[in-house]
Simulated assay, not measured.
Amino acid sequence: MIALVTPRIAVGTEDNEVIAVLRLFGSPAREESEREYCYRVEAPLFELAVYPQDAVVRSVWYDDPAGRETEQGRINKVYAYLTRYGQLTDWELRLDNGWMHYWFNPVAHAKMVYGVHKDVIRFNRYDEGHA
């Protein structure tokens, strides 16, 4: 199993708590696009971005090179992240289009999207029927 060095930031967490966590890894930079803004930090071992909405985290993005060298390493990393955000048995892979794997966990009110080619992970808030 892969040991994750990234911080666990749960969707639904208040953004002021998250900014304090991000500061442990560097100065978070605020980035904005037309649709959203995020707080991003580039640490020596990973990159991380947090997307708040109404002062609550709605998405967390990880660029974590752990396990990236092999296919089995990437699979182990995906499972490590899934278990970090709920019981593995609560997660369901609902879509694999060759580029993205879409995992859903209605118990934890989270979904995970894994970008196969860039090996990045994004967790989003999720409520069954209100994706």
Rank of each mutant, 00 (worst) to 15 (best):
T70D: 12
H101Y: 13
E14V: 06
F123T: 06
P65A: 06
P65K: 06
V113W: 00
G73F: 07
G115F: 07
V50I: 06
W61K: 09
R122P: 01
P65E: 13
L45P: 01
V41L: 08
A55Q: 15
W103R: 03
V78S: 04
V18S: 00
V113S: 12
S33L: 01
W61N: 05
F123Y: 08
V11R: 02
A80W: 03
P52N: 11
E17G: 07
S27Q: 13
R74N: 10
I75D: 05
N105T: 04
V57L: 14
E71N: 13
Y102W: 13
L45G: 03
I75Y: 07
A29M: 07
K77I: 07
M1V: 05
V107T: 10
A108H: 01
Q72T: 15
W91Q: 02
N124I: 04
R122V: 11
I9E: 15
R8F: 10
E92T: 14
R30C: 05
W91G: 04
E42K: 03
D119H: 09
Y62W: 05
P28N: 05
W61T: 06
M1K: 11
R40Y: 04
H101D: 13
R40Q: 08
D54V: 10
A110R: 01
L95N: 13
D54L: 15
G26R: 04
R84M: 12
Q72G: 05
V41F: 03
I9N: 15
D64S: 10
E69S: 14
V120N: 03
V78H: 01
V18T: 09
T70C: 05
L22R: 05
E31K: 12
L45R: 08
R35I: 02
E17D: 14
Y79W: 03
L24D: 11
A20V: 12
F46T: 05
V11P: 02
V57P: 04
H117V: 07
E32V: 09
H109Q: 12
Y37L: 00
R40K: 12
L95Q: 06
D64I: 13
D96Y: 15
A10S: 15
H117T: 06
F104C: 00
M1N: 10
R68H: 12
D64Q: 01
R23A: 13
A80D: 07
Y39W: 09
T13E: 08
V116R: 13
V120D: 08
V116M: 03
P106A: 07
D119S: 07
V18C: 00
F46N: 00
F25V: 01
M1E: 12
R122H: 07
L24G: 05
Q72D: 14
A43H: 01
V5R: 14
A43K: 00
Y39H: 11
L4I: 00
Q87A: 08
Y126S: 00
V5F: 14
D63Q: 13
I75N: 09
Y126W: 09
A49Q: 09
E31S: 09
Y62G: 02
N105K: 04
K111G: 03
D64V: 13
A66L: 07
R35W: 03
D15N: 10
M112V: 06
L48I: 02
E128N: 09
L88Y: 05
Q53M: 12
V11Y: 01
D119K: 02
W99R: 14
I2N: 07
R122T: 15
T83A: 03
Y85C: 02
G26W: 08
L45I: 08
W99G: 15
W103P: 04
